[in-house]
Design a protein around this nucleic acid. Structure first.
Lengths: 215, 215
DNA sequence: TGGGGTAAAATTGTTGACAAAACTTGCATA
DNA sequence: TATGCAAGTTTTGTCAACAATTTTACCCCA
């Protein structure tokens, strides 16, 4: 038996975050504090505190008059998030590739990819494995600020991967697509690392924006 | 006459942020909600909401048992922040240098540097001009996610610049040190941009870490 | 018909009180 | 002396009520 030691506020935060990412709170939807608080069986005060970090994370946006709503990302904004994500991961991967123990690092990265070898993996599990791999690249650098900055973006990234659906998203979450990144890090060739990573993220990004509705 | 339309919570947030950055709330200091709320003449609930974003920003840290305290940054963490900042600004500057209107962009950047030509500028104003220049690099890209990520770091950066004091910090906030960055962007030479920027931030970083006490 | 004002409803902003948890302090005891 | 227990204090967690603001609905009148 394991108890959930988190405070109500933390659980609210997590719950709402997941609802947004999963799409059960649709982009553009207004957050009515009273109603949502009732659904979660918490007081408005507790909910409001839980909402604040989500606002800072960019999952919720205020309209200047106090009303919060689920962020609706334009195609342009999606491309922007990928640019920043690319810069962060590029830094991370470069740092890893410059380390003397880069082979060991690459081994750990490959381990994280094992789930993706299973072709029948659920969409949700694919996303977890994929983003888990990319986050691990950041974490292994030991730079907590880097990891935190990456995490700030990860919610938005998950949200749009799920929004675009398995048909288009799954194609670029395969094992081989990620193994080349680990290989590049193991090689220690910084230019190659940056090139491979940029290519990976770029294809990914294009796949989302190709025929996505522009607004 | 101009009224302050911001909510109490927003003003609290801003006030506490400034107090932390300016050092009047010292690193490591415990935040006692009741006492601080009384000082600011607001209720605990309002204050608590105001503190949450500061926690997300990394200016406050929780100890896992609900107690918040002002973040104390180690030398290692300072170096890490500079690494991430470098990655973000490098992306931004590269984007600007690749634009057809890069000369116009460089001109706007140089404008922002004018205050630094005044040798008798106050320390606080120097910091504003310096960081304002770097933020402008991000803003001019038009990538809001990039700007937001950079802003998340700016509080921590200001905090440590002020903590280290004018003696060591002022040396690298001169006009010429920044003008070369604008020049590089105007040149359109991406490699040169990255090199100049990396050099600038690196010297800056070294200056803080040189004889800073390690913990 | 449409512009404008006003009452009503809905929603957020703010507060103070109570509950729960964590941290002292002092004492009793092995 | 070290340990454990227990009362009391401090501090955070949560809630429900009230105030202020914004939105909506409706009616009046030119």
């Amino acid at each position: 038996m394991k108890f959930d030691k988190r405070t109500l506020r933390q659980r609210c935060s997590a719950h709402v975050r997941e609802a947004i990412i999963a799409g059960s709170l649709e982009p553009g939807a207004h957050i009515v504090e009273m109603r949502l608080a009732e659904e979660l069986n918490v007081s408005r005060g507790t909910l409001r505190e839980a909402l604040r970090p989500l606002e800072a994370e960019g999952l919720l946006v205020g309209d200047g008059k106090g009303h919060l709503s689920v962020r609706r990302m334009t195609a342009k904004e999606i491309a922007e998030v990928f640019q920043v994500r690319g810069a962060l991961e590029s830094l991370a991967a470069s740092l890893l590739a410059a380390r003397p123990d880069r082979e060991a690092v690459a081994a750990r990265l490959r381990d994280a990819l094992m789930p993706l070898k299973d072709e029948s993996l659920s969409f949700a599990a694919q996303i977890e494995a994929d983003l888990g791999f990319h986050e691990l690249i950041c974490r292994l650098t030991g730079n907590a600020t880097l990891t935190k900055s990456w995490r700030q973006l990860s919610g938005q990234i998950k949200m749009m991967i799920i929004a675009v659906g398995p048909a288009r998203a799954s194609a670029r979450m395969r094992y081989a697509d990620h193994a080349v990144i680990a290989d590049a890090i193991a090689s220690g060739d910084l230019d190659r690392v940056r090139e491979v990573l940029a290519g990976h993220l770029n294809e990914f990004s294009l796949r989302y924006l190709d025929d996505a509705p522009l607004d």
